[in-house]
C-alpha cells in the first residue's frame, strides 16, 4: 500500500534507525578531513577490539590471498586502505539498513549493499582514472552511503512500482526521483539527507547524499565529489547492479564533463576494474558481516 509520509513521520523514521557505532562515526569524521593522517585511523581502530579483530580477519581471508598471516593492525590498515576500514565499520554498524529487502523497489535483500559497494568502488575508480584532484578514498565512502535514504522510504513505496514506471514512461522529463516524491512525498535523496543529519555525518557526505542525482546543485566545494558519486552510481546501474525497479531510470547530468573528464575507453577500464574489485571485496566484507 503506497503511503504519503509527512515531515513528522519522516523524522520518526529517522529516529527509529540505530545510530552508527562511535568508531564508524568517528572514522567518517576523520577521513573526511583533507589533512588527516592514516595514524589517526590506526589509533581509532586499535581502541575498538571488535573492529580490530574484524579487520585482521578480513585481511587474512582467502580473498586477499596473502602468503603470510598479518597480525599487526598497522600493517593491515595500510595494506587495505582506509576506505576498506570505513566500509567494514559502516557495514558492521548499519548492516541491517544496507541488507534490508527494498520491497518498495522490488529489490531483494542484499541488493542495496551490493549497489552501494559497486558505486563506492566505481566512484573511487572515476577519481583515480580521471586524475581529478579530490580524495578517491572519500569518493568511496560517499558512494557507500549515497543511497541510505532508500531503506527509509522503501516500505512506504510498496505496491508503487508499476505506477511509478508508468509515470516516468508517459510523462516527458520525469525520472524515478519525481516518481518517489509523487508517491510518498519525499525522494530517497531527501530522506537520506535527514538521516545524514541525524547521524551527524560530515557536511561533504551529507551534500553528496542529497545531490547525487543532481550534482550541479551541490555546494561548489563538494561538487566534484558529488559528480564522482553520480557517475559511480550510473556505472553501478549499467553494470547490472541497481536496486530493482529504479535501475537506470535516472538522468545522467551531462555537465559532468566540466568537472571530470573520462572517455569511452577509460569508462570501459573503470567498468572492468569495478567488476574485479567488487568480486574481491564483496566476498570478504560479506563473510564478516554475516557473523554479526
Amino acid at each position: 500500500m503506497v503511503q504519503q509520509i509527512s515531515q513528522e513521520e519522516l523524522q520518526k523514521i529517522v529516529k527509529s534507525v540505530p545510530m552508527l557505532s562511535p568508531s564508524a562515526s568517528q572514522l567518517l569524521q576523520i577521513t573526511a578531513q583533507a589533512d588527516h593522517d592514516l595514524v589517526d585511523v590506526v589509533k581509532l581502530v586499535r581502541n575498538d577490539a571488535n573492529l580490530t579483530a574484524r579487520v585482521l580477519k578480513i585481511i587474512n581471508s582467502a580473498a586477499f590471498g596473502l602468503a603470510n598471516t598479518i597480525t599487526s593492525i598497522d600493517r593491515a590498515i595500510s595494506y587495505l586502505g582506509e576506505r576498506i576500514i570505513v566500509g567494514i565499520a559502516v557495514g558492521d554498524s548499519a548492516g541491517k539498513l544496507f541488507e534490508k529487502e527494498l520491497s518498495g523497489y522490488e529489490s531483494a535483500d542484499g541488493d542495496l549493499w551490493k549497489h552501494d559497494l559497486r558505486t563506492a568502488i566505481a566512484a573511487r575508480e572515476v577519481v583515480t582514472q580521471s586524475g581529478v584532484d579530490i580524495s578517491s578514498e572519500l569518493a568511496f565512502t560517499a558512494g557507500l552511503l549515497h543511497d541510505i535514504g532508500k531503506s527509509l522510504i522503501s516500505d512506504y513505496l510498496q505496491g508503487s512500482v508499476t505506477d511509478a514506471i508508468e509515470m516516468i514512461t508517459t510523462e516527458e522529463g520525469l525520472d524515478y526521483l519525481d516518481a518517489e516524491e509523487k508517491m510518498v512525498g519525499f525522494d530517497h535523496t531527501q530522506a537520506g539527507y535527514e538521516l545524514a543529519k541525524a547521524w551527524q555525518l560530515p557536511e561533504e557526505l551529507a551534500e553528496v547524499i542529497l545531490h547525487h542525482h543532481e550534482p550541479a546543485n551541490a555546494k561548489e566545494e563538494y561538487r566534484t565529489l558529488a559528480y564522482a558519486v553520480h557517475l559511480g552510481d550510473n556505472i553501478a546501474m549499467l553494470g547490472g547492479f541497481g536496486t530493482g525497479s529504479d535501475s537506470m531510470r535516472y538522468k545522467l547530468d551531462q555537465n559532468y564533463t566540466d568537472y571530470i573528464k573520462i572517455g569511452p575507453k577509460t569508462l570501459a577500464t573503470i567498468m572492468l576494474n569495478v567488476d574485479i574489485e567488487f568480486e574481491k571485496l564483496e566476498g570478504s566484507l560479506k563473510s564478516s558481516g554475516e557473523e554479526n
Binding site: N234, L238, M248, Y250, L252, Q254, L267
Partner: peptide, 16 residues
C-alpha cells in the same frame, strides 16, 4: 544493452 536516461556518447556503453 540498456542506457541510463539522458545519456551522452561516452556512456552509451550498451550501444557500443
Amino acid at each position: 544493452g540498456a542506457n541510463v536516461m539522458d545519456t551522452n556518447d561516452t556512456f552509451q556503453i550498451g550501444k557500443r
